[in-house]
Amino acid sequence: MTRYAFLELTSCGDCLSELYMNPEINKLLEEGEIVYWPAYGIVGDPEEIGEVDVTFIAGTVRTRRDLEELEKFRRISRIVVAYGTCSIYGGLNGLTALLEPRAIADGEYVKLLMPTVKPVTDYIEPDILVPGCPPTREVMARLAKTLKKYISGGKPEKKIFLIPGEVLCKHCPRRPSNPEKAEMPGIRDPNEVVDDGRCFIEQGILCLGPVTANGCNHLCIRFNHPCMGCMGPARGVVDQGLNMIGSIGSILLKSREVKLLFPGLAKELDKLRDPMGYFYRYTLPKAMLTKLALRRRGVE
């Protein structure tokens, strides 16, 4: 019987419950056995659990215990699935990457915490990676299909990334007919724009499509909501924020720059008051600048 473990590290705490509910996954689980999942009453010392076939891991490493558990379960598991954006890039919980333990807890509790928050992938090698906040139903089904192949033994030869890495804009229903000509007319608050159905960037709304992997079938876009980057960087993107700054530099007000000159451009750029929030909502621990900031604190 296939033995499954559910390991929930620091996060919003819901990813694995959702996964469990998925009919395809649920069927697999029913044919197997869940040997560890404290949130649903299945507790045990990892040292005594024995071999685990598949461990699903969600969340980030913030506490020292997170790290201990993570390492233990990697050791005893044949296949490790990093499930959800938190586990791969830090996710929304990763927004706390620059907070020192003392900013989060007091007294003896400070000692429980790691100096920063990091995704699971910074510490261990998972076999299967499933981004999404949450991963979509389609991706869950893909996961079930992939797991079936390895249920009776073996493991993927190399890491399996369960979403295609291509950039979201590529097949976007709002893609401009001539992307070379596309121009960002300014920087606007999405709440202030009466959406005309064109590419968000052409309407002055920051959409992370140019730097984000498509693993959602344009879910947000179809809901008339700009991409927030939850699937992580597209193939070839080094750093979602820095790459995005590169794109903005190319297309913001490009037909008017000679008229606006530097002061005019600066005025428009000042409307983006929280670039960190816009660019790194889901990937702050992976930002190159986070690395730099942490190094200055003596953490890296």
């Binding site: 620091t10 913030r62 929304l92 919980n93 927004l95 989060i104 915490l113 816009y278």
Partner: peptide
């Protein structure tokens, strides 16, 4: 489980909060 998420809401552009606070 200590997270500190509420601490990073300060300084954010307010329009971003609905997409962060559900976490």
């Amino acid at each position: 489980e200590k997270r500190g998420l509420e601490k990073v809401l300060k300084g954010r552009s307010v329009e971003l909060l609905p997409t962060i606070t559900p976490s």
